[in-house]
């Protein structure tokens, strides 16, 4: 198991966001988290990346308990990439500097080598001509692809994608999804919170439906999305279909 969450609990004040959630993710596996807003998808990803501290349970990365307070969170985060819904690129840095910041400062790689690697990636995703631009000159889809590259240059063991297409115009969603599909082809282990059911069906090996802070149902996309067992899953999917998103 690359990632193993056991009985994870997270509260904000009196609100219980994760209520004994358990989820395992194997090597090269892609798991899609679906569920209504507030079901705990984003919170789970933030807890895995140690941006939020859990209140109970255990999260293991490659078998190591990363929720042990004696573990250095910086060293854990170096092994986990996180991509945000709102991109969160650094506005005062060029695209290239955004990408090379962590390789140079955290992983202590030579600046020229980091630049070369960044340019290779930008070339691959068709953004080589944007290397010297500042983020606000890029479209949302371009910014999000840069954000994914920024996470990937650190060669993470696990990539977390938090509703990465939710802030995008519909015609820009495709370019980001193509990139994620390519990553799956290369064997990247990923957990993605998403509202794109069609995409979850195509790219995920497993779909997990989160409800009230737990994994209520999980399995192959065809089963969970096509023939769910739980009534609440059916209810959720019915609303999604109503909204025209499946």
């Amino acid at each position: 198991m690359v990632l193993s969450c056991t009985d994870v609990r997270k509260t904000f004040g009196s609100a219980v966001v994760l209520d004994g959630l358990s989820l395992d993710v194997g090597e090269h596996e892609v798991v899609a988290l679906i569920g209504a807003s507030g079901s705990g998808k984003s919170t789970l990803l933030r807890c895995v990346n140690l941006l939020a501290e859990i209140d109970d349970g255990v999260i293991r990365l490659d078998g190591e308990d990363i929720t042990d307070p004696r573990v250095d969170p910086d060293s854990v985060r170096q092994k986990i990439g996180l991509v945000f819904q709102s991109y969160n690129l650094f506005p005062h840095m060029t695209v290239l500097d955004n990408i090379t910041l962590a390789p140079v400062r955290v992983h202590k790689r030579a600046a020229t080598a980091a630049r070369e690697q960044a340019m290779e990636w930008l070339d691959r995703v068709g953004l080589a001509d944007k290397a010297g631009s500042y983020p606000d000159k890029l479209s949302g889809g371009q910014q999000q692809r840069v954000a994914i590259v920024r996470a990937l240059v650190n060669s993470p063991r696990l990539l977390l994608l938090d509703e990465v297409t939710s802030a995008l115009d519909p015609e820009l969603v495709g370019e980001v999804l193509t990139m994620i599909r390519d990553l799956k082809g290369e064997g990247m282990t990923m957990v993605l919170a998403t509202h794109e059911m069609g995409f979850a069906r195509q790219v995920a090996d497993r779909v997990a439906f989160l409800d009230q802070g737990r994994v209520l149902e999980q399995g192959p996309p065809a089963q969970v999305l096509g023939d769910p067992v739980e009534p609440r899953t059916r209810q959720f999917l019915a609303r999604i279909i109503e909204a025209g998103r499946l």
Partner: peptide
């Protein structure tokens, strides 16, 4: 969210 992005890349608080 800027701090979150920086920390998620493995940068320390100081960095």
């Amino acid at each position: 969210s800027q701090v979150a992005a920086a920390r998620s890349l493995g940068l320390s608080y100081r960095q």
